[in-house]
Design a protein around this nucleic acid. Sequence first.
DNA 1: CTGTTAGCGCTTTCAG
DNA 2: CTGAAAGCGCTAACAG
Lengths: 355, 355
Amino acid sequence: MDGLNLTPEAADAAVAAYASAHVKPVTLADVARAAGTSASTASRALSGRGYVSAEARERLLLAAERLGYVADASARTLKQKTSRVVGVVVSDLRNQFYADLAAGVGQTLSAADYQMVLLPDHADTVRETIGARTFVAMRAAGVILTPAGREATSLLVRNGIPVVEVDRRLADVPCDGVVVDNERGARVATAHLLGLGHRRIALLVVETDWTSDAGRLRGYRQAHAEAGVPLDERLILPLREEAAETEGLIGQLLDEHRPTAIFAANNVLAEHAWRVLRDRGLRLPRDVSLVGFDDVRWMEMVDPGITAIAQPTVDLGRAAARLLVERANGFSGPPVTETLPPSLILRGSTAPPAP
Amino acid sequence: MDGLNLTPEAADAAVAAYASAHVKPVTLADVARAAGTSASTASRALSGRGYVSAEARERLLLAAERLGYVADASARTLKQKTSRVVGVVVSDLRNQFYADLAAGVGQTLSAADYQMVLLPDHADTVRETIGARTFVAMRAAGVILTPAGREATSLLVRNGIPVVEVDRRLADVPCDGVVVDNERGARVATAHLLGLGHRRIALLVVETDWTSDAGRLRGYRQAHAEAGVPLDERLILPLREEAAETEGLIGQLLDEHRPTAIFAANNVLAEHAWRVLRDRGLRLPRDVSLVGFDDVRWMEMVDPGITAIAQPTVDLGRAAARLLVERANGFSGPPVTETLPPSLILRGSTAPPAP
DNA sequence: CTGTTAGCGCTTTCAG
DNA sequence: CTGAAAGCGCTAACAG
């Protein structure tokens, strides 16, 4: 109980709070009373908008401080019909891509004095919709999401809450978005492999209607077309990231269709592929080349490093937050989609195929 | 605008919402009116507590559905003086340890029908305190945090909000906690190295008053004492995880004090150490052995793998959430601290020192 | 510059 | 089983 600038009463309150679980919170009226003003004056002083004499403000700030006043967010939100909360819904925080994205969003939002509220949805449309309802219920100032379905966005927009989709577009209602140029990234990755002489390049993609993966698939096809290399459709393997059988399917692809290179359309699939290759004793890049979409830390740590299409992940988050803040501030132009460029990072996992 | 089960009106509402940003949300009164009942009855029907005739309930549920009613959380919280929100404050979501922790917390909370609200604080006491104020303002049902300082917990408890500290204890007010047995983990790790014959084992720890690192330091000392190996205090290197000079300091330690093994007290420090060793062309385990506290994915992917003290990270989160839910349900026994066991995972990064 | 007044949308007695 | 009434804590007109 020492080393802390708590008044004795406050310390007692803490213990009492623990014991009884009955603390009645300090209200604005309490502060006003302590400072000898009305509640409205107190409100003006503490929220900083409206005229208050310097002395009154002084007294009120002091009283608030002394009493440990914390404004009740629900009362304020109820009155103002909007809050400073911005909801952020991402698929999976354990995936470094989404963690980085959330970090970027958080930076920009807190600089703009919004409160980020993070909600993982495990890429599940049901959870996502529940999350959206929560944010509607909270009267969030806006929501940023990596969409799993269309329903959440539509629910939010219908309720007048601005939405920014990041990483992929799915909405069928008008809303802003920030994405990376998936098509170009995939084209560059595939062209790199084709340029090395690979003719049988497997593509691991997520089996959804997400535009990110659709774009990556298109880029892969384009690169083949541009190089005039015929494409064996059996080399395209649609997968579900979480699925237990994923690595088995990759192994099967390896056995049955003998690709000389693998392009994994995201970091999770790249990791699966890497593990399969390792577990089979196949050596990178001698036996197979590997390129990942999405540059995450382990790709630089393993030996050889993994050639990857790097996304400006943190910037993706920052850009989304910036767009959202503009909307929250009332900007009402037509929907904007920002597209950020990916870049190819060359490492040791790619080389010409064995002769 | 297709493929979605939106009524035409709802779809129009979405577009209108976007254009005008003026949607007036559906209130309970609207639903009641549509169903021909009073607001009180509507409240009882939709919240499911209190008597309502089956028919009335039916009509109300239908009306709510049709109008797209979403209860206003602020009004409800204002009235009930508590919400279903549980705040979770973690240091850094980009650190896999905290992401896993949050995942565990989220699982248990959503099963108990609480809403997790995640807030990263970058191990900064100021941000942490701001977060705590936010949760006081939101009338959160409870808060789970990896404490960076004492102030946040004390603020929360003083306001009657139950707190569970995870990963480390810091509070000077009574609250629950869930930690891993850091002392034992560090003792086991150090004993493992001593057992291999190492006599100069460097310890990389975080320079804070966090109990986690204090425990790990104690375990390291104990192991030396038990083995009767004198300890060169210069081998203990207090570091700040984020600091730019961290890798330089590790390199300096290597040069000046010639350890034959390194014990890194967390996964971030282990990564720094690993990079320093790699960049200097030192080979694991021939030139130096390395043990990390905290088993994260890359440790199994690099070659050789990193011997590590694994924490039951997700379980840590689950346990914390379980404790918190009990408190939120009114349990008022004395503070509980749960201690979970760590385990040693042997990999290739440790071997006897070169002769 | 300050206080009075009137709600925001919901839940909860309390009568019927 | 249902409705009327009151009020949670805050802010925003509007008069002073």
